[in-house]
Computed example of a mutant assay.
Amino acid sequence: MGQTRADKWFEAFIYVSLSLTVLIVVYPLVFVISASFSDPSHIMKGNVWLWPVEFTLDSYTKVFQNKNILNGYLNTIVYTVVGTAINLLLTTIIAYPLSRKDFAGRNVITGFMVFTMFFSGGMIPTYLLVRDFGMLNTIWALVIPGAVSVWNVVIMRTFFQSSIPYEIQESAQIDGCSNIRILLRIVLPLSMPILAVMTLFYSVGHWNAFFNALIYMTDRGRFPLQLFLREILIQHEMTDMVQVQDESLVKHMMQVEGLKYAVVVVANLPVLLLYPFLQKYFVKGVMVGALKG
């Protein structure tokens, strides 16, 4: 059937709207990348709009010469890998029993878990608990308090229920498989899409996290990258608030200006590289998250 004039106008409106949305989303990323390769003086003058002005790698050279940033980068990688591994392990071993029809009391347990999504102990009691367990200035202060996301547990439980036929598990149980073996040999191999989605969600959360480190960390040698990026941004904002006359301070401001954009690019590069490999699982994860039965 041919399109009516109203359909053509509506289709054109959709294309224009989506094009504007793409530009709004993509332009900040393009600007940050361009600014990171531009001379800092042109950034401060507002000459950088789309393409780098006076292409230079000085900002990236300073990033990789800064021991604090490199140490923070390494710390963030360790926190992300360890934290994501703990998240996946605990989420899986909680979601699997809750997905089994023969597990008595699973709805009650799920209700108690969902309750924690609306009510928590609060920041100060959590800090006191972390302190009393001796986890301050350790990796465990960053990975243990958020080791399980109830929302992700519900999503994974729903995937197990809706995507893996219960009859397969019953057949394996009749053949003598234990619950652990069913989980390892049947459920997990069939759950690669949801595992990929959970890996992405948890790893991005750990990579971008800074608030817990701000609360629980005082040793700069254990700071994640995001705290050093925060220091650079705050330093830049403070210098913008004063009238600067000293030439050395002006030069320092220009260095910070270029360093800021270079650190943002370096900090987000692993996540940007991870998305293309896992994007095919996004729709699957969203659709599973829409079913809470």
Score class of each variant (00 low, 15 high):
T91Q: 13
L88P: 02
F64H: 09
L70R: 13
M117H: 08
L57G: 04
Y79S: 00
V108H: 04
T110E: 14
T84W: 00
D102N: 15
T116L: 08
N68Q: 15
N75T: 00
G83L: 01
Y96N: 08
Y60T: 01
F112Q: 05
T84C: 03
A104W: 14
L70F: 11
F112W: 09
T116A: 08
Q65D: 12
Y60K: 05
R100N: 10
G83I: 00
F118D: 14
N66Y: 06
A104P: 03
V108S: 08
D58S: 12
T110Q: 13
N68T: 11
R100H: 06
I109W: 07
M113V: 04
F103Y: 14
A104S: 12
K62Y: 07
F103M: 15
I94T: 15
T84M: 02
F115M: 14
F103V: 13
A104N: 08
T91G: 05
K101L: 13
F103K: 08
L70W: 09
L98W: 03
D58T: 13
T56K: 09
T76A: 01
I109C: 02
V114C: 05
L88V: 03
I86G: 02
S99L: 11
L74W: 11
N107G: 03
T80K: 00
V114N: 04
I69K: 08
G72W: 02
P97R: 10
N107V: 10
V82L: 15
D102M: 08
R106D: 11
R106F: 07
R106N: 13
I69W: 10
L89G: 10
N71S: 15
P97F: 06
F118H: 07
I77D: 01
Y96I: 09
V81R: 02
V78Y: 02
K101R: 15
G83M: 00
A95K: 01
T84R: 01
F103I: 12
I86E: 01
T80D: 01
L98M: 11
L57Y: 11
F103C: 10
N107H: 13
S59L: 03
T56V: 08
F118K: 07
S59I: 05
I109F: 10
G72C: 12
A85S: 11
V108W: 14
S99H: 05
F55K: 07
P97M: 10
L57T: 12
D58P: 02
V78F: 04
A95Y: 01
T116H: 03
F115R: 07
G105L: 14
F64G: 06
L98D: 05
D58Q: 13
T116D: 09
V81M: 06
E54S: 13
N87R: 04
F118P: 09
I86R: 00
V63D: 01
N66Q: 09
L90V: 05
N71G: 15
I94C: 08
T80Q: 00
F55L: 15
T80R: 00
F118S: 13
Y73M: 15
K101W: 03
F103P: 06
G111Q: 10
V81S: 05
V82H: 03
I86Y: 01
R100C: 11
T56A: 05
V81L: 11
